[in-house]
Amino acid sequence: MTASKQFLELSDFLAFSVWMQDRDTEVYSPVITLDEQIESIDDLFFRVRITTAQGFQFDGCVNGMGDVGMGIFANGKMYPVNSNFPKFSTESLAELSADDPALGLPEASSLFPLRFTTIIERDPIREFSGEIDFRRK
Rank of each mutant, 00 (worst) to 15 (best):
F46E: 01
S83Q: 12
P124Y: 10
P124R: 08
G76M: 06
S17I: 03
T118A: 06
N84S: 11
P106W: 10
N63R: 15
F46P: 01
F73K: 02
S17H: 04
Q21D: 03
I38G: 06
S92N: 09
P86L: 11
K87R: 13
N84T: 06
E91F: 13
S109R: 08
G64P: 00
M20L: 09
K5A: 13
D123L: 12
S17Y: 01
F45T: 05
P80W: 03
F134L: 05
T52Q: 06
A53W: 01
P124H: 09
D59Q: 14
F112A: 02
A3G: 08
K137R: 11
G130S: 06
T33K: 07
F45W: 14
L10Y: 08
F85T: 08
C61M: 15
V81F: 03
S4N: 11
N75Q: 09
M70V: 06
G64K: 03
P86W: 09
R115G: 02
E36T: 12
N84H: 13
S110K: 12
V81A: 07
F56C: 04
N84R: 11
Y79Q: 01
R47W: 12
S89M: 07
S29F: 05
G130P: 04
D43A: 12
Q21Y: 03
S92M: 08
V18L: 14
F16N: 14
D100M: 09
G66S: 09
P106Q: 13
M20I: 14
Q57R: 15
Y28V: 00
F46T: 00
F13P: 00
I125C: 05
D12K: 03
V68F: 11
V62P: 00
A53P: 04
S4G: 04
D123I: 06
V31K: 01
S83Y: 13
I132F: 01
V18E: 01
G55S: 08
L103Y: 10
T51L: 10
P80I: 10
L114P: 02
N63K: 15
F7D: 14
P86Q: 07
G66F: 02
A15T: 10
D123P: 03
T2K: 13
D67S: 11
T52D: 11
F13D: 02
P113W: 07
L8S: 08
R126M: 12
L34M: 14
L8A: 09
T51E: 15
L14R: 14
G104F: 01
R126L: 13
E9L: 11
G69Y: 09
F116E: 00
S97G: 11
N82D: 15
Q6R: 14
N84V: 04
A3C: 04
R122A: 14
S29A: 15
